[in-house]
């Protein structure tokens, strides 16, 4: 069970309040009709699915009902940070992982 900090509610809540909605920072093509089938298929279906640092969207279904982003390690299940839509992650696979802050500490069962 993850404990996830919602950056809008500013509360840490249990995973069951949230829905997972997939990889973050995927931009919908502005003009779908103008791009190739390859590019459209890539946008719809192809994912990076890394073992390690992953940026993903969660939806606070039983709270503020807003989407936000989470940086989570898919191997250790540690949550490194949560951040609002439109913001960029500070922890990435390229940047070394800092110790998690107390308020944003994620935890997996």
């Amino acid at each position: 069970m993850h404990h996830i900090y919602c950056p809008y509610c500013e509360e840490t809540r249990e995973e069951e309040e949230y829905s997972y909605t997939g990889e973050a920072h995927i931009e919908r093509p502005k003009d779908p009709a103008a791009i190739s089938d390859e590019a459209w298929g890539d946008y719809l279906f192809f994912r990076s699915n890394p073992r390690g640092i992953h940026h993903e969207m969660w939806y606070h279904a039983a709270g503020c009902r807003r989407y936000f982003n989470v940086t989570r390690n898919t191997q250790s299940y540690e949550i490194h940070e949560t951040y609002k839509m439109g913001e960029l992650p500070t922890v990435t696979a390229q940047v070394p992982t800092p110790a998690p802050k107390a308020a944003q500490q994620g935890e997996a069962s």
Binding site: D42, F45, F46, R47, S48, N49, R51, T74
Partner: peptide
Amino acid sequence: GNSGVMAAMVGLRLPIES
């Protein structure tokens, strides 16, 4: 489950989530 990791070795992505 590790197919995405294998694909990444040659720079490919798959329509798979583990």
